[in-house]
Design a protein around this nucleic acid. Structure first.
Length: 263
DNA sequence: ATGGCTAGGAATCCTAGA
């Protein structure tokens, strides 16, 4: 079972890349962030033609998430609990049936960036992370395989960026941000990529500006966090960075976790 | 790299991203 997360930075601008990637990589489940369209604008026909079921939680212009899957989910919910006044489309959850193994829950999340840090955006990010922590804690009680996949906008450790000094005062790397991320780990969630490799200079985002990609000035901010029941099934991970070199790329690349439900 | 680029919406520039 191949599960992917990819901040696609505009699904309408990226539809050719997305279709090529689905054909090449053939994920069973793909979580997309920053679709930047309302549900009606999502290019679902092209994706359905490749054999995928499409669920979206869109928003006009910004944000928006989607879950593509080879098998139709049993249920889908939209929005992160904990703030009824939050209008931003950044979270959805889909529940799948795995033959012989019960439910698999996949959450697709686009965590707020939080910059500039001296505006209301940073407290919004921290409040969102606290809501995510509560949600994750509640879900753990189900004792099911759960994957929280998405663009976390969090650089977990200094070696997850090319130059920690550059990010010192950035919302992606501030101590409070990293602490909130660690709290997810302390609940019992496993960072899938870090569980499978100690490699450094392993990134999932390269800025469009300043030659960041050719210089490999990247950051690792797209993560798949696994509940214990999912982490027990973790077989391998991959960061499909070749996609960043394609024509008209997203600034993020797909990150993959392979879960083995064969036994 | 305190932004050198990109997407989207409104509109020929702005906001947002990280």
């Amino acid at each position: 079972m191949k599960i992917a997360t990819w901040n696609i930075n505009g699904v309408k601008a990226r539809i050719e890349n997305l279709c090529q990637w689905l054909k090449d990589s053939s994920p069973d489940i793909a979580c997309l962030q920053e679709i930047k369209t309302v549900d009606e604008g999502f290019p679902r026909l092209e994706i359905e033609a490749l054999g995928y079921h499409v669920e979206t939680h869109g928003q006009k212009g910004f944000n928006g998430v989607a879950i593509l899957s080879k098998v139709k989910p049993d249920e889908v919910t939209r929005g992160l609990p904990g703030d009824d006044g939050d209008e931003q489309a950044r979270f959805m959850e889909a529940v799948f049936s795995i033959e012989g193994h019960g439910a698999l829950r996949v959450c697709c999340l686009y965590l707020p960036n939080g910059n500039p840090i001296d505006t209301e955006k940073y407290p919004y990010k921290l409040a969102w992370m606290e809501r995510l922590r509560k949600f994750a804690g509640d879900r753990l009680a189900l004792e099911e395989p759960i994957i929280l996949a998405g663009d976390y906008n969090v650089i977990p450790e200094p070696h997850d960026c090319f130059d920690p000094k550059v990010w010192e005062n950035d919302a992606l790397f501030l101590p409070q941000t990293r602490r909130a991320f660690r709290q997810l780990e302390h609940l019992g969630f496993t960072d899938a990529v870090r569980a499978t490799t100690d490699a450094v200079k392993l990134y999932s985002f390269w800025d469009y500006q300043a030659g960041a990609w050719p210089k490999n000035n990247g950051i690792r901010i797209d993560h798949l966090m696994l509940s214990p029941e999912a982490a027990d099934r973790l077989a391998a991970t991959a960061i499909e960075k070749h996609v960043r070199a394609w024509e008209k790329p997203s600034d993020h690349v797909p990150v993959i976790a392979h879960l083995d439900f064969s036994s």
